[in-house]
Design a binder for these strands. Structure first.
Lengths: 134, 134
DNA sequence: CTCTGTGCAAAGCGTTTGCAAACGA
DNA sequence: TCGTTTGCAAACGCTTTGCACAGAG
């Protein structure tokens, strides 16, 4: 039993070949759109359906195996759930980069001053990656 | 000529009654979904079309008169463009609150350490508002 | 007067659903 | 074997488009 099978199990998901491939692809590429995932999986499964992608993405989100990243001005991408981090999004090549960033102190400050109970923070920086700056 | 007419002019938008009402509604309520906007405008214009809402929202975004706020797990809302700020979103009542927050120092830090040229930052805190905590 | 915006209906497109067959445990 | 998942096709819902008329400047 490989790592992805275990990972799926932990999140109460049966390990089908399609799901294993989704997990593998997200692990390898970090962030993928529905469309990109579909294209990737088509290389493995000649007759895979978009419906299968959607059904799996949805159940994987429900089970906290993956997360949706909503990006300004572009379509969403999906990533394996991992510890909280921020995203850098290149407006030119659409690359998405994770950066470690502890927002807890800031959240705490705001919670205290606004009486709003903060559970999660979502931070996206948009701009140009090193390559696209040239 | 009222304020909203001027505001629209500044963004190179003709001041039609429908647009004036959109501007007024966003100014008054802060953040509105397409659907909410449609319901509000229907009170003023008995035969307004959803297509008109969409066309105006789109051109207003293009002309930087308004901005879309993409919220995790819910539909987008729209707001008048103003200086950079973060959002508090209540997961229970879906209320959206603006908070002033200067992310420039943080952006600068990240830009320098990551060689990524940051243009804009987008920060959303999700949780429970004061009322919904009870 | 001219060009843009509006409302309506139809088209478009991404996403979801229902179902029979295939499959995982 | 039993319950879940897959793939297909159809349905769905949100958004966009084309067009004729109305309205802003």
């Amino acid at each position: 039993m490989n790592t992805y099978t275990e990972l799926l199990r932990i999140h109460h998901l049966k390990a089908t070949p399609q799901r294993l491939e989704i997990a593998y692809a997200l692990d390898k590429y970090g962030h993928l759109s529905i469309e990109a995932l579909y294209e990737l999986l088509r290389n493995k499964f000649n007759s895979i359906s978009l419906a299968t992608i959607y059904k799996n993405i949805n159940i994987m989100i429900e089970n906290a195996f993956i997360q949706e990243v909503k990006i300004p001005h572009t379509k969403s991408v999906y990533e394996l759930t991992k510890e909280t981090h921020a995203h850098l999004v290149c407006e030119q090549c659409n690359q998405v980069i994770d950066i470690q960033l502890d927002l807890n102190p800031l959240s705490k400050n705001i919670s205290e001053s606004s009486h709003f109970q903060i559970k999660t923070a979502n931070l996206i920086f948009s701009g140009l990656c090193q390559v696209c700056q040239k």
